[in-house]
Design a protein around this nucleic acid. Sequence first.
DNA 1: GTACGACTTGACCGATTGGTACAAGAAACC
DNA 2: GGTTTCTTGTACCAATCGGTCAAGTCGTAC
Lengths: 186, 186
Amino acid sequence: MARPLADRQDVISALAEIFRDHGFEGASLSTITARTGLGKGSLYNLFPGGKAEMAEAVLAHIDGWFRTHVFEPLDQADGGMAAVQAMFQATDAYFRSGRRVCVVGVFALGDARDLFTEQVRGYFAAWVTALAGALERAGRDPAQARADAEEVVAGIQGALVLARALDDTGVFTRTLARLRAGLGLA
Amino acid sequence: MARPLADRQDVISALAEIFRDHGFEGASLSTITARTGLGKGSLYNLFPGGKAEMAEAVLAHIDGWFRTHVFEPLDQADGGMAAVQAMFQATDAYFRSGRRVCVVGVFALGDARDLFTEQVRGYFAAWVTALAGALERAGRDPAQARADAEEVVAGIQGALVLARALDDTGVFTRTLARLRAGLGLA
DNA sequence: GTACGACTTGACCGATTGGTACAAGAAACC
DNA sequence: GGTTTCTTGTACCAATCGGTCAAGTCGTAC
């Protein structure tokens, strides 16, 4: 146990970018070894479960990030819209205004969904629920709050698809602004 | 040249469903032969370019469908909103209320985007442009029309992601209704 | 300095990938 | 029936896939 355990987090971050760019099937072990700089042995030492465990770690990492930076602030929101505003800012920063794409979204559309059903479902469900809760506390009736929340989350995901397809980050920025405006935010 | 050319269209339709379910990388030739019922020989006879040509044919097929059923009606719209209404209906029918996912969207997020950049870009660009045009003729100023069009197309794509992730077609139906309402439609 | 053990490496494994070659089969004309 | 033309299944190919593992490397403890 000599080693300082090093950089599991760094590896996971690198893996996240790889899965983001190539999807689950598209990320071959050779790409992974090339872009992480680690040999297969090291990878299987860190993730004995292979690619599936790597992807799981990435999903857990993302889930953790969103939980602390997005979901929990929304959960703790009092009746104001500050947390919702903050969510938009965090989202824009995280996705780099549409230059980055959502790994969970990529998995959701691809074959990988069947392997990670629960984590994919959980991520989006948590997001919608947290946002709906905050909107409800801000005065909307429950049904409206949920509908608005779904529209925002779907809008963000769709904007990512469009931004990537058109190779135009403007779409993402504009859509985010429209969604914000739709909730009555400046 | 004896054969009546048979069923290329049928094969393309089957291929579309395969790529829809598995993405480009995920659709292996063995799945394709299994689900189309055709041997490799037949497939390479129909599509000498292999998987790439199959995907291209699928994209072209989809593009054709949307052109005749969505884009052109929008282009020919007079000042009314009937064509926009029709678009929503056609979209809901095509995506089976979210049970089906958008092949072009799947390609856009995955590795395949780099192989089919132009077709992916073209599809979404045509959709946004056609819708924006119809909205503009219905009285919106150009910038607003384009923003609204982007929001609708992004919203649809995002709703597909969400519906698939949550395994809940309700999300798709509700989002479509909200988007319609946002344009002032009943 | 030596022994230990966590970590890394890269050759190697069988399975599967996309793609090719080709012989057998089926359909239309004579 | 014979011939020609096209279509089909299948055996095969090199390359690559995800994954394994024996052979090391190297920092630390003694």
